[in-house]
Design a protein around this nucleic acid. Structure first.
Length: 269
DNA sequence: CGAAAAACCTGGCAGC
DNA sequence: TGCTGCCAGGTTTTTC
């Protein structure tokens, strides 16, 4: 479910666990995207959370001696509960126990993952990632150079985490609509000006989504239980057949790499 | 090498 | 009320 804004929203909701002691971890199902390491609980328990941050779509707990890397996959979410609350929901897989409360990881499709590492920058899930879209490293010159070298379409390029992180299927459509670029456009045909529009649209859309707590289509909720309201600001995603808010043309839905892709055939070229 | 397709899972929904 | 097939917010692995 979660793209950058949803992960960022989740992290903000659990930020209060920074400087708290991670007393222990309970794992009820080790069969996630990858099997959870046997030593993970033992090697991470009884340490202070020194920092709690996001890298790409990963949630990272910086502990005293190591880092925990958590990914929510397509359907994962966190929720906060009282330490002694024993209210289990189907697909609860992991509990992070703190002094007074716990964080529960739930994930129906089990595309998520958890890893423990001593050197996070060298970890295989982290070391190949591109720049953060909200950083200065993601700028029009950078994107333009990538576009020149790539043979694929611009939507696929934007969703490739080696190029830029955090952009998934929903926000890719929204960003390209705002930038007035057709998602099927060959990246090598884009101009520097086009790249500038895409970079600006990316930052604008992601920031706007973070501001309202992400996008809740059906099952995304922040760790404090609140939904995201960006659904009401979506311009194209899920709006096939409806009128473009700009030109009144009908929004179309097409597939790129088997993923639903939404655009206005009149505004985007 | 890069790009496309398959793979990992469960649940919900449309259609028969 | 089943059953089948398809779709879903992601990313790695395999294949071409």
């Amino acid at each position: 479910m979660p793209e950058l804004p949803e992960v960022e929203t989740t992290i903000r909701a659990i930020k209060k666990f920074k400087n708290q002691r991670l007393v222990n971890i309970n794992i009820y199902n080790r069969n996630l995207r990858w099997e959870v390491d046997k030593n993970l609980e033992e090697d991470s328990k009884n340490q202070i959370v020194r920092d709690l941050r996001r890298r790409a779509k990963y949630i990272i707990f910086e502990l005293d001696k190591c880092s925990l890397i958590l990914h929510l996959g397509m359907s994962g979410s966190l929720r906060i509960a009282g330490k002694n609350e024993n209210f289990f929901i189907k697909h609860d897989h992991i509990e992070f126990l703190f002094e007074n409360e716990k964080i529960i990881y739930n994930d129906p499709r089990r595309f998520g993952s958890i890893h423990l590492t001593k050197n996070i920058d060298k970890h295989r899930l982290i070391n190949h990632l591109g720049p953060e879209p909200l950083s200065k490293d993601f700028n029009s010159e950078y994107l333009y150079n990538l576009c020149l070298k790539s043979k694929t379409n611009i939507k696929t390029l934007l969703m490739n985490q080696k190029n830029v992180v955090g952009i998934g299927n929903i926000y890719a459509s929204e960003i390209l609509y705002l930038a007035k670029i057709c998602p099927f456009k060959n990246s090598f045909e884009l101009t520097l000006k086009d790249c500038e529009k895409i970079v600006r649209a990316s930052k604008k859309i992601l920031n706007a989504a973070i501001r309202v707590g992400g996008t809740t289509l059906k099952d995304f909720y922040s760790a404090d239980g609140s939904p995201g309201y960006f659904k009401f600001k979506l311009n194209v995603y899920g709006r096939e057949g409806l009128r473009c808010k700009n030109c009144k043309e009908k929004i179309v839905r097409e597939n790129i790499n088997k993923r639903a892709t939404f655009s206005c055939p009149s505004c985007q070229s």
